[in-house]
Amino acid sequence: MSSIARRLGVMGQVDADVLSWRDTIIAAGGSVSVAILSIASRFVSDEKASDAWALTDDYWPFWGENLIQATVSLKQRRTVTLVNAPAFTARRHFATDGTSRYLNTGFIPSTHKVAASTHNIRLAVYLRDNLSGNTYAAGAVSSSNRNLRVRPRNGSVAYLDANSSSGTYTLPAATSAGYTAGSRDAASGASSYGYKNGVAMVQTVAPTAFGSASLPVVPVFVGGYNNAGVFTAPRATSIGFMAVGATLSAAQELAQYNAVQAWATAVGANV
């Protein structure tokens, strides 16, 4: 079989959503290799098999093989703006500096939600480093407890805000590295959840106040959070992947973690 025929054989198995993602990247001047098409297609297939795809509004594979690829979101195909030159390492991550460099996803939760809603929201980040501090990996905040943020590690706990005040969750190991998700599916502490690498964390402090007017009305920033338009609580971090959407079940959390980790492993970005 010729090389072209082999490539067409692979292309025939590529998910239609992945082909749309590829086309957006190419139109922006980037490229997607056959290998990444296969990896991304497997990811989307796994997500669809668990029904997490329908519940997740967008995904950001920051571990792209080139800069343009890394700045186009997978599902809604939005282009990230790189503010003040965050460092990009192909097949690994974007690195922010904890002072001035960050990413603006352009994803406004209140406007761009599809599956998510005011009382059903989730934010997940895959970090490649371990840092403890009062700093945020990503988020967007508007008034009246419309806080969507991940503080992946401060000491032994993660602080997770799912359109609410902070809930705290005990990390299974004292590290920010890995896949951290915060979500809620109703306006109560008992309906607020934290997951690390697909496994539920023990809630130590429940959120007590909940955004009820809407989701945040400003874009989600990465490397800190967007506080009503102001870049706030910056974190020097290396982020490989992010997802936003509605709450996942325990089984879907594990399935998504496994799918994310498989993509990370395939490109060498796994931690």
């Binding site: 282009t79 790189l82 503010v83 003040n84």
Partner: peptide
């Protein structure tokens, strides 16, 4: 130049900063 932007960060004293790497 897409996909980049400049957004000076406000600090105390009414001044702004940018990383010299830009």
């Amino acid at each position: 130049l897409p996909p980049y932007a400049l957004e000076p960060i406000e600090r105390q004293g009414g001044v702004f900063i940018l990383p010299a790497g830009v």
